[in-house]
Structure formats: structure tokens, C-alpha cells
Amino acid sequence: MKIKRVIYFFVFVFGGFLLIASLGFCPLPGDDVNFVVPPGWPQPNYDLSKNKLTEAGFKLGRRLFFDPVLSRDSSTSCASCHTQFSGFTHVDHSLSHGINGLKGTRNSLTLFNLAWGTSFMWDGGVNNLEVQPLNPITNPVEMDNTLESIVKKLNSSALYKPLFYAAFGDSTVTGQHVLKALAQFTVMLESFNSKYDKYVRHEAGGEMSKEELKGLKIFRKHCASCHTEPLFTNNAFENNGLPVDTELNDYGRIRITHDPNDSLKFKVPSLRNIANSYPYMHDGRFGSLGQVLEHYTQGIVSSPTLARQLRKKIRLSDGDKTDLIAFLKTLSDKQFLFDMRFRNYAY
């Protein structure tokens, strides 16, 4: 009798252990780390062979992305200015603010399809996705920190050291590994399942209305030479005829190249998820798509570096504008905006 009880006890304990262990092997929704090159897209620019995506690396990058430990006073994380539901930008803030509520001079960019980016930031000053986070980390009005102090903090963290070991086989945290982990998360932020994408792929859910189709036609005529499909950017820098804000005096790419031909030029942003990522332009001066179209039809300021495509006035009727906006809304990718893998699990 007693022996039977002991056997039952062991079966119970051992069985329970097996059950828990097997759960550990079940993939959670956040675990699918599979970078995709969607059909018909160009090859990505980012070299994934030099930063092999792993579940551990992706999860570490995600944790770092949401962790305010990256800022000097542990107040501000990457996610503070890059929220998922807006396409990873700072929705409703024309100029993004960071530590102590200090304001920057530019509107935070969206984060998706970054593997196809050829340069980063509004002025293209950054040449590789991996080193992009150094900007917000060191900017005095964003995180006001240094990579050295982050590495020091993480190296004294009992939580992070095993995570770095799991991701890179080395529990000593290095600057390189912090940046590679962040890149593993950000490179996975892919958006290619909007209604427009399904329309192009002839998939269910891609049925466009008459207005949306008319809008697509207008888009391809007036907008697509810069906002080129399928990425909806040509990765170039253009002056889109905005009058200079005399308080900010931001002349864009010339700061990087010192080339007068680059005066007033800014990166052409992707229009994917555009309806969710307001406000618009490098300084967030427009709050609605209606205002943006107003600018392109009525507000262009001529200057020597103005984009060639904008030298001739764009004429759109009110109906055209409505159709164009209807089309732009088909670029919202709910699957991406609500993808469970990109949520904050750690906090």
C-alpha cells in the first residue's frame, strides 16, 4: 500500500515535470523568427548572413527595445517614441520628446521593412541599421546616454547576462552584441500584408473598392516616382517644397554631405501604414492626409533643389483627393500593427 502511494507520488511529480517541460518546447506566439522576402520584392540591403537571426537574439532585441534601461535615467525606451499601433512611430507628436520631456527637432520615423533601407534617419546620416540606435541612445534630448554605460549596466544585470549568452554564446555584454540584438528585432518588423498587398497578390481580403482603385491610379501617376512600390519609397532624398520652419532651420541632408545640392532634402519616407502614423513630414507639421495633399497641390515652395517631379503643379479635384486618401488607407497592415511577436512581453 505504502509502495503504491510512493509510486503514485513519483508518477504525479514526474508527470507534472514532463508536462511543464513539454510546454517549454511549445512555441509561443512570439517565437516565430522567420525573415521573409515577400514575392516580387527586391533583395534586402541588410546582410543577414552577418547577424544570423535566432529566437534568443530576437527576444533579447525585443526586450532591449522596450527597456528604459537604455536611457541615462531609465525613463525612456525605444518604444517610448516608436509604438507598434502607429507603425512604430510617435503618433500625435509633431516633434518627438525624450528624456525629461525634452523635445527633438524632428518627427520620429516609422520602423518597418528596415532590411530594405539603404540609409537611416531623415538626413540619411546613418549607413547601417545596426548602428542606427546609437543616435537616440546618445542624443541629449532622447536617451542622453552612452553605449559604454549601457554595456556596463547590462554587464551587472543578472537578468541580461544569461540572455546575451543564449543569443551570442557569450555572457559578457559587448557594444556589438547590444546593437546586433536590437537589429535582430528591428529587422523582423516587416509589413507586407496590407489590403493593397493582398490586392497585388490576388488574395482574399484584397478586394479594392472603386474609389480605392481610382486612388491607386492617381497615386501611380503623381506619387509613385518617389514613393515607389512595393516599399513605397525609393530610398532617395528630395526637397518636397516645404517652406523652412524659421525656428528649427533644418536644412536636412546638407548637414551630412555639405553639398549645396542637398539643401532642404530629406529622406523619402515609406507610405505604408500612413493612415496610422500621423503627423507627417520631417517636422510633423501636418496632422492629416488632407493637409498633406493640400501641400502637394497648393503649397509647394520653389527653390533650386526642389524635386523635379514637383516643378509642375499637381492638380487634383476634391474627388481625386478623396479617392487618393481611400487608396492610402489600404496601405495599413493590421497584421503587422497587431502582430503579437512585436509586443512587449517582458514588462
Partner: peptide, 20 residues
Amino acid sequence: SGANEGDLDPVKAMYWAWNT
């Protein structure tokens, strides 16, 4: 070539953030 290691690690404070 992005984030390098060893003496080239950006942690060495010999790296420009805003203009790579």
C-alpha cells in the same frame, strides 16, 4: 559594416552616431 567587435566596437567611443 555596422556594429563591429573588439577595438572597433562602438563602445570604444571612437564612433560618430549621427553621421556614421
